[in-house]
Design a binder for these strands. Structure first.
Length: 450
RNA sequence: GGAAGGGUGUCCGAGUGGUCGAUGGAAACGGUCUUGAAAACCGUCGCGCCGGCAACGGUGCCGUGGGUUCGAAUCCCACCCCUUCCGCCA
């Protein structure tokens, strides 16, 4: 959610930037309701003041008939106005929540994902002296993926992942947790990119896989809910999470975090669930697009002034991880239409998939500024010494209070299904074997191929 | 699932209808004292909204949402969560 004060101050900008993201919002109507709302609130506060004034005069004595009558009158007026305000709020809130986060100025303006900009390509598309097989052909020959039986048991877009592929997944997971916990690697990337950050390691987390409706909504990740799985009976009020971000980012809801504890960096592992509504017929072969997939997700809570640097660090880590696996990839600067509603900025990494002869999305890095934090009420408390500290980011205006909203970032470490697709296809041999990227060898107890 | 108890500010913990946004203690921060530290003493010390350049003023918030009352942290109803015991299960 945006700050209503920001919208009051910049109505034209809000309309324009919302439109760039493909959201039609009625800022005029919102501000009209905002005005009505403020008027009512002022009237209500005045009545309450009178009520408080009178009741403080009565103290322990019995109130007179006049006082009771006057009180009743206030009560009637008040309940009328409060009902009125409630009606206004019911219109006001959805309009306010409907406004997306403002894209940062370096986000390319575009009307669809076709206008995403390739920022760089790293590595050459893998060359083969034979015709490469698709990952499902490779998997079929070695019985690594059984979708037929999974379909029988659970329906389409489910799979049994088996044998060497499971070992490969566990190796990747260990590799990621070790890498993200390594201060030297973090420091190296921070230095390379000239970031003003500490090398505080990522703490591994196994978060809840289910999330309550209001929390999901506050994260602004519930919609479109056709893509979410509702769990059990309605009274359970729970959803299956679609990304570890959903239950990691909401961890500190309604909390105020001391500034010196920031940044907080987590790498969460979860099996994620998506209904993939509206994707009928897309990616039906193999395990590119599943209802259930395992994912390692990074989540960072930071101060406002370091949020953008954290985003850069997350992308640098994604590139480092992909490069360590020796996979060719490209980095995509997502355009205004393709970044999520809560996003101020979004970067994708696409990894080379030989059988499709193109790069496919394997990673996303989302920077939400304070948009998620506002509804989650996740804030930071400036420690006194830092209040006078000179901040070296130009765009940042020093706070007037010691409490501010934090900034959130989330980014894929690895979507394990898709990254294994990339490994299978890029590391295949003519014989149909799959070699293991060398950085993973320490985690595979002597196995060198699948 | 059954029984009982409980959710108050950063923490502990008072408060059962009216000067309670809330006693007291701890922590934290500033200061006095001290060679320094500790101790002691003095002071500061919740969050949001509205108005104001600001000082400040108003208002709301004692798990959440309703209700009763001239007046609710306090009474009533519903829901959520926690603790203990029993049952069941991993």
């Amino acid at each position: 959610m945006l700050d209503i004060q920001f919208i009051r101050d910049n109505p034209a900008l809000v309309s324009e930037k919302s439109a760039q993201k493909g959201y039609k919002v009625d800022v005029g109507q919102l501000l009209e309701l905002d005005g009505q709302r403020k008027t009512r609130m002022t009237q209500i506060d005045e009545l309450r003041r009178r009520r408080n004034e009178q009741s403080s005069q009565i103290k322990d004595q019995r109130p007179s008939d006049e006082q009771i009558a006057a009180g009743r009158l206030i009560k009637e007026e008040l309940s009328q106005l409060e009902a009125d305000l409630k009606l206004i709020d019911q219109q006001f809130e959805p309009l306010l929540k409907a406004i997306p986060n403002m894209p940062l100025d370096d986000v390319p303006v575009g009307a669809s994902e076709d206008e995403n900009v390739v920022a760089r390509q790293v590595g050459e598309p893998t060359k083969f002296d034979f015709t490469p097989k698709s990952h499902w052909e490779l998997a079929a020959a070695k019985d690594l993926i059984d979708k037929d039986r999974a379909t029988k048991v659970a329906g389409s877009r489910f799979a049994y992942i088996k044998g060497g592929l499971v070992e490969l997944q566990f190796a990747i997971m260990q590799f990621v947790i070790r890498t993200l916990g390594d201060e030297q690697i973090l420091q190296q990337l921070i230095t390379e990119h000239g970031l003003h950050l500490t090398p505080k390691p990522f703490v591994p987390v196994l978060p809840p896989a289910m999330i309550k409706t209001p929390v999901y909504d506050a994260m602004d990740r519930l919609e479109p809910r056709e893509d979410r799985y509702k769990v059990g009976a309605d009274e359970d009020d729970l959803w299956l999470q679609g990304s570890a971000e959903h239950t990691l980012g909401s961890m500190y809801m309604n909390e105020i975090i001391p500034e010196d504890q920031l940044p907080i960096r987590y790498v969460g592992y979860l099996t994620s669930f998506r209904r993939e509504a509206g994707t009928y017929g897309k990616d039906m072969e193999g395990i590119i697009r599943m209802h259930q997939f395992d994912k390692l997700e990074m989540e960072v809570f930071s101060t406002p002034e370091t949020g953008l640097d954290e985003h850069t660090l997350l992308v640098a880590l994604q590139e480092y991880l992909v490069a360590q696996l020796g996979l060719p990839y490209q980095v995509l600067s997502k355009c205004t239409a393709d970044i999520g509603k809560p996003n101020a900025r979004g970067i994708d990494i696409e990894t080379w998939i030989p059988s499709q002869n193109k790069y496919r999305e394997t990673h996303t890095a989302d920077y939400m500024t304070d948009y998620q934090a506002r509804r989650l009420k996740t804030r930071l408390r400036r420690v006194p010494q830092s209040l006078n500290k000179v901040v070296n980011v130009e765009a940042y205006t020093p706070p007037t209070t010691a409490i501010e909203l934090i900034h959130t970032n989330d980014a894929t470490a690895f979507a394990l299904g898709r990254i294994m697709v990339a490994i299978m296809e890029n590391y295949q041999t003519k014989a149909g074997d799959i070699l293991i990227p060398s950085v993973l060898l320490p985690y595979l107890a002597g196995r060198t191929q699948i």
